[in-house]
């Protein structure tokens, strides 16, 4: 049976990239799965929504800016209520090559996993990000190893495929700001099976990253706190 994958594309002022991202996603459907792009326009002030509507995709327009986590969760809720079998997050900035989703999909099917994360640090090919950012990611890898006992090399990777069971969980809870590292803790403590697959990413083709240099310190602190609280919430449910 052909399976339905929701490609969730959160987009905030991405008019330069959005069309090519949607077309790339549409081009990878094959005999095993049909992938449908769902663009979540996070209250963009440019032509993101207008351009996306001309393409073959579903567009959800948020009335206020929710940030990446809220936007992605909107897509997850849509996917869950419209009976999609899987959902994959693909950033609207063109960093995630759509073909990599095929790898994630077969890896998930083959190993009967719940979450598959695309990691750019397994093969160390393609866009590797800046030195400082890699240090930050290394820190989260160590933190995850310590708290969860699993090794996730690229926990800030947004490219991740999840199945229906995971979808039902993220509809109830998904972090608002910088959700990627925190959600790994959330997944693991909900006893989901997680695995990483080597992918190659490209440098963003336009727009600016949501994590700028000045805010990176805030990012580290906020995400560490969020991980800590999520860990407490799920690990010590009975006390709280």
């Amino acid at each position: 049976m052909i399976q339905k994958i929701a490609a969730i594309i959160p987009a905030f002022n991405e008019e330069y990239n959005i069309v090519s991202v949607i077309r790339a996603v549409n081009s990878i459907s094959n005999k095993d799965f049909e992938i449908i792009p769902i663009v979540i326009n996070d209250c963009s002030t440019d032509g993101t929504s207008f351009l996306a509507r001309k393409e073959k995709c579903i567009v959800l327009d948020l009335p206020v800016n929710l940030g990446i986590g809220g936007a992605v969760q909107t897509g997850y809720i849509y996917a869950y209520h419209n009976n999609y079998d899987y959902a994959v997050q693909i950033d609207g900035d063109g960093q995630h090559p759509a073909e990599e989703v095929v790898k994630l999909f077969y890896e998930l099917k083959r190993n009967d996993l719940d979450v598959v994360i695309g990691s750019r640090f397994i093969l160390k090919e393609g866009f590797q990000s800046t030195f400082l950012r890699r240090m930050g990611i290394r820190y989260f890898t160590i933190l995850n190893k310590f708290l969860l006992g699993i090794r996730i090399t690229d926990c800030t990777s947004g490219l991740r495929l999840i199945n229906k069971k995971t979808l039902s969980l993220v509809c109830q809870y998904y972090p608002d700001e910088y959700p990627e590292p925190e959600s790994i803790v959330f997944f693991k403590l909900n006893n989901l099976r997680i695995k990483e697959v080597a992918v190659t990413m490209v440098a963003r083709s336009g727009g600016v990253s949501s994590i700028r240099f000045l805010s990176s310190f805030y990012y580290m602190v906020k995400v560490s706190l969020a991980i800590f609280y999520t860990y407490l919430r799920l690990k010590f449910k009975k006390i709280f």
Binding site: L60, P63, Q73
Partner: peptide, 17 residues
């Protein structure tokens, strides 16, 4: 309020669609 606001915005987006 933040949580409720987020939920409203998501519902509105889904309903518009």
């Amino acid at each position: 309020l933040h949580k409720k606001n987020k939920k409203m915005a998501q519902e509105i987006a889904l309903m518009k669609n």
